[in-house]
């Protein structure tokens, strides 16, 4: 029996605000196995980003238990268990792409030679070979986001946490990056937790889709995808794909996500 990489057990998170307590997460239980690609989908306020931030120890649950790699989220962070990709690329404008990727490596104290080696490797992984000396503003939005994924990969974390990484990009670029991300996932065997607003994106990428709904933030459905690991873009026109997408949509509706 494999132990789960991320294990949430009756997780609760209540924010105390001026308007009273807000239930960001309520009774969230979930297991993510090694090598899974799990998407979290739901409307704003359903707690999908909050859950990801809990895994990253950027927020701390007020109830229940959460382990990452068998440790507390705080320890997992100390052990560099995960790389986090934010909505915006967040590259430093005063650093070249290569030096941006070195940022976590510098902080974690890798040697200069090791840094250079790793930068080369991850630039290759995200298909940005030869762009190391460019500054962020010289790259397109999609390339910047790829560079930020490279930065998250540079220190060999097992888990990749992604919070709507392609949300700000247009659909054509997004399709392309989704394809690349799948290829990257197949090559690196990372465990991915991926937050998105887009049903096709969630269905296309995931082995497991977690449907969430707001007030309080909770899980309404967990769908194990029947789609094969090998997924060309046109898999999105197959009946199997549409069926999964339909179930996701049903799940969102069941959570009264469209009420307001």
């Amino acid at each position: 029996m494999q132990t789960p990489i991320v294990k949430a057990d009756h997780l609760d998170l209540v924010f105390q605000t001026n308007d009273g307590p807000v239930h960001a997460l309520s009774d969230v239980s979930l297991e993510v196995m090694k090598g899974d690609f799990v998407s979290f989908i739901g409307p704003s306020g359903c707690g999908k980003t909050t859950f990801l931030r809990c895994v990253a120890a950027l927020e701390h649950p007020t109830g229940g238990s959460l382990t990452v790699n068998g440790m507390t989220p705080d320890n997992a962070r100390q052990e560099r268990s995960y790389g986090y990709v934010f909505q915006a690329a967040g590259l430093y404008p005063w650093r070249t792409i290569a030096r941006n990727i070195k940022l976590p490596l510098e902080i974690m104290g890798f040697s200069k030679a090791e840094q250079d080696k790793r930068v080369e490797r991850v630039l290759d992984l995200v298909d940005l070979k030869g762009f190391g000396k460019k500054y962020p503003w010289q790259l397109s939005g999609g390339m910047q986001q790829r560079a930020s994924i490279a930065r998250a990969l540079a220190f060999d974390a097992d888990i990749l946490l992604m919070d709507e990484p392609f949300g700000a990009l247009d659909e054509i670029v997004r399709d392309h990056l989704n394809e690349q991300l799948l290829a990257l996932w197949a090559r690196t065997h990372k465990t991915c937790l991926f937050v998105t607003h887009s049903i096709p994106e969630a269905v296309y990428l995931s082995t497991k889709i977690v449907v969430m709904s707001p007030r309080p933030g909770r899980i309404t459905d967990v769908i194990e995808s029947p789609l094969p690991k090998e997924r060309p873009l046109d898999i999105r026109d197959t009946p199997e794909f549409l069926e999964v997408a339909h179930r996701v949509r049903e799940g969102l509706r069941a959570g009264h996500a469209y009420d307001d």
Binding site: L58, R77, Y82, L103
Partner: peptide
């Protein structure tokens, strides 16, 4: 906030 969070994930 995002840039500060990023460094936090590195335990900087």
């Amino acid at each position: 906030r995002m840039q500060l969070d990023l460094l936090k994930t590195y335990s900087a």
